[in-house]
Computed example of a mutant assay.
Amino acid sequence: MKLNALLKTLGFLALAATPVVAGPSAPVKNPIAPPPANDDLGITASLGYDSNYVWRGINYGQHWVRAGLNGALLLVGGAGEDGAGSTSLLWNVDYGSLAGDQDSFSPSILGPTGGAVKTTSSFQRLQLGAAVSHDFGPASVSFGYSFIHNMGSLANGAGLNQLVIPGTGGYGMNDIQQLTLGVNTNLGPINVSSSANYDLFNGGWYFDLNAKSTIAVTDAISIVPHAGLGYGLHYNAGFTQGSRNLIGGAGLFGSNSAARGGVTGWTALNVGLDFPIKLNSRATLTPYVAFNLPMGPFQNLARSSTLPYAPGVGGGPATAFHSVAYYGVTLSVRF
Rank of each mutant, 00 (worst) to 15 (best):
Gly272Ala: 03
Ser106Met: 14
Tyr145His: 10
Lys118Ala: 14
Leu252Phe: 00
Leu89Thr: 09
Ala22Tyr: 09
Val65Lys: 00
Lys212Gly: 11
Phe143Asn: 06
Thr330Ile: 00
Ser146Cys: 00
Gly204Asp: 05
Ser213Cys: 06
Pro317Tyr: 04
Val313Cys: 00
Pro308Gly: 06
Trp205Leu: 09
Leu209Asp: 09
Ala216Gly: 12
Gly188Ser: 08
Ile32Gly: 03
Ala220Val: 12
Thr9Arg: 14
Leu75Phe: 02
Gln102Cys: 07
Leu75Ile: 14
Leu6Phe: 07
Tyr235Cys: 07
Arg56Val: 06
Met151His: 09
Tyr171Ser: 05
Pro287Thr: 06
Asn150Lys: 09
Asn156Gln: 03
Ser97Asp: 09
Val132Asn: 07
Asp199Cys: 11
Ile223Val: 15
Trp64His: 13
Pro311Glu: 10
Leu98Ala: 00
Ile221His: 02
Asp219Glu: 14
Leu41Thr: 12
Trp55Cys: 00
Trp55Thr: 11
Val21Phe: 14
Gly114Ser: 12
Ala139Pro: 01
Asn256Pro: 02
Leu181Gln: 10
Thr267Gln: 06
Ser213Asp: 03
Pro35Tyr: 05
Gly57Glu: 09
Gly203Lys: 08
Ile215Val: 15
Gly238Val: 02
Gly77Val: 04
Asn300Ile: 04
Ala310Asp: 12
Asn270Ser: 10
Gly57Ala: 12
Thr113Tyr: 07
Asn156Met: 06
Phe105Gln: 01
Tyr231Ala: 07
Leu3Asn: 14
Thr185Arg: 05
Leu279Thr: 04
Ala250His: 08
Gly315Met: 01
Asp39Thr: 10
Val192Cys: 11
Val117Glu: 10
Gly261Trp: 07
Gly261Glu: 02
Tyr95Glu: 12
Pro317Arg: 15
Gly230Glu: 01
Met295Gln: 15
Arg66Lys: 14
Tyr235Gly: 05
